[in-house]
Computed example of a mutant assay.
Amino acid sequence: MSATENLLTTPLNALHLELGARMVPFAGYNMPVQYPAGLVAEHRHTRTAAGLFDVSHMGQLRLIGPDAAAAFESLMPVDVIGLGLNKQRYGLLLNDEGGIIDDLMFVNRGEDIFVIVNGACKHGDLAHIQARIGGRCTIEPQFDRALLALQGPQAVTALARLLPGVEQLVFMTGMPSTWEGADLYITRSGYTGEDGFEISLPASAADAFARALLVQPEVKPIGLGARNSLRLEAGLCLYGNDIDTTTTPVEANLNWAMQKVRRTGGARAGGFPGADKVLAQLDGAQPAQRLRVGLIGLERVPVREHVELHNAEGQKIGEVTSGLLAPTADKPVALAYVQAEYAAVGTRLNAMVRGKAVPMAVSPLPFVPNRYHRG
């Protein structure tokens, strides 16, 4: 039996093949990396119109019960209790050393906390959450539900034809909806830096709903390749590349994701796994020795993950974790970890590409301005 035959498939597998997708293994699934138009065309279409992404490999779960918010908050340096109804937030599951087990999105839907985790991590995340807070709330995996992302400046126009009312959502809010008898939940969020939506729906409705979206003149199918180039231009982390169990939120430059109520004073500060280390890095008592930064290439040479970064004296001071020639920015960009003293914007470094020093400079993030719809 080939490795491909052991892969799981999403509810849109037949549609991907029909559309001529090139399929690759990803997070245990057979997934479309690109369609015949190619990565750059798909990337540009998402930036100018609307791209449809199959992200059904992601894990969806519900935390149910009166203590669910407080229980979930005990696992992350994030404000869960204070999140308003149908509001969404970015979260970080931490281990006892402050390392990132996974990054995730969650919504307070009133009846539950609805959580979306990364595909490769979902079974481990579920086991971790059950082990830590299973006695405090009901944890219901919904790994059989489909998840679609519609991203780009014309996403709202296309989606509102099928689901009137979605145009009223703003960035990081959600709403329930129905389509042809299927129960949907829509959030105005995504992983591209563009305006857009993520739609959770039953697997049985996914193919018909995707086809209904693809009929819209603004919408084309987009694969994992462009999803990666879009998120990198947006300065967003890819779990397993840019963050993992060896990186803390402070090292990953994700301080913004830790709300003040969890950081300083008060009854709800600290109390999460790894809090002593993370808070000591935050307040400067034990500063992080390395930091995640953005880099732009000063020559037109793509710089990929695992490339070493050297200072002017030729000493290794860091490593690239994600990198490519960015279609919209039209230059090489990368995310990397560097020793803290080299993290200031404008600092010059050399990426060692096949033995040759390629000059790069620390850049602000994102590389392409975000265009989220904040109302």
Rank of each mutant, 00 (worst) to 15 (best):
E198D: 06
E198R: 00
E198C: 02
I199C: 00
I199L: 04
I199G: 01
S200Q: 10
S200M: 07
L201T: 00
L201F: 00
L201E: 00
P202F: 04
P202Y: 04
P202K: 04
A203R: 09
A203M: 10
A203T: 09
S204I: 10
S204F: 07
S204E: 15
S204G: 15
S204W: 05
S204H: 11
A205R: 00
A205S: 08
A206P: 03
A206C: 04
D207P: 06
D207N: 13
D207R: 14
A208G: 15
A208L: 04
A208E: 09
F209E: 00
A210F: 05
A210H: 09
A210P: 12
R211G: 09
R211K: 14
L213N: 11
L213A: 04
L213E: 05
L213H: 07
L214Q: 09
L214E: 11
L214N: 13
V215Q: 14
V215C: 11
Q216P: 12
Q216Y: 03
Q216F: 02
P217R: 09
P217K: 09
E218S: 11
V219Y: 06
V219T: 13
K220T: 10
K220Q: 13
K220L: 15
K220N: 06
K220I: 12
P221W: 00
I222C: 07
I222F: 08
G223H: 02
G223T: 00
G223W: 01
G223K: 01
L224W: 08
G225R: 13
G225V: 05
A226Y: 00
A226L: 09
N228C: 06
N228R: 04
N228F: 13
N228A: 13
S229T: 15
S229R: 13
S229E: 15
S229L: 14
L230V: 01
L230G: 03
L230A: 03
L230D: 01
L230T: 02
R231L: 01
R231V: 01
L232P: 02
L232Y: 05
L232T: 08
L232S: 08
L232N: 06
E233V: 03
E233M: 07
E233G: 09
A234E: 06
A234Y: 02
G235E: 07
L236G: 09
L238C: 08
G240H: 07
N241Y: 14
N241V: 08
N241K: 11
D242C: 08
D242Q: 10
D242L: 10
I243Y: 05
D244L: 03
D244I: 05
T245W: 13
T245R: 14
T245F: 14
T246Y: 10
T246M: 14
T246E: 14
T247Q: 11
T247L: 10
T248L: 07
P249W: 04
P249D: 03
V250E: 03
V250C: 05
V250I: 15
V250S: 01
